[in-house]
């Protein structure tokens, strides 16, 4: 099944973000707009490129995702780590951004 979302980094601070159905950018993968076919993905990518051109995001790209138990999760480990934060980290407490999860168990 075709399920893709668009991710990027916010230009000013580098935070990992996802395009939402409202054409906003959220640091939470669960908020992402999930394209269910290639036509929808093309529309999303155009929104990503537009955000790049406006200097809101950098490096927008499509990733494979799936909807499990009504939430969006990344298919690949790399994107799962991008979404959840490092699985091991020295700053065990989030600093100033609730998108940063303190600790994620080994998958």
């Amino acid at each position: 099944m075709f399920e893709n979302v668009i991710t990027a980094n916010r230009l000013d601070d580098g935070t990992v973000i996802y395009l939402t159905r409202e054409s906003l950018w959220s640091p939470t993968l669960a908020d992402a707009w999930v394209a269910e076919d290639e036509d929808e993905a093309v529309v999303m990518m155009a929104a990503g490129e537009n955000a790049e051109n406006k200097g809101i995001v950098v490096g927008a790209y499509l990733i494979a995702a799936e909807v499990l138990d009504d939430t969006v999760v990344a298919v690949r480990l790399r994107e799962g780590i991008r979404a959840d934060g490092p699985t091991r980290r020295t700053d065990s407490v989030s600093v100033d951004d609730n998108s940063e999860q303190a600790h994620v168990p080994l998958r």
Binding site: V16, E52, G55, V58, G59, I81, R82, P86
Partner: peptide, 28 residues
């Protein structure tokens, strides 16, 4: 200039790298 949009990412990327600034998996 990057924040104002007068430098594109393609133009800015080599400049930030010359100053040791990468864009990694989660952040700069």
């Amino acid at each position: 200039r990057r924040m104002k949009g007068t430098l594109s990412e393609d133009e800015f990327r080599p400049l930030r790298l010359m100053n040791g600034l990468y864009l990694q998996l989660h952040a700069y």
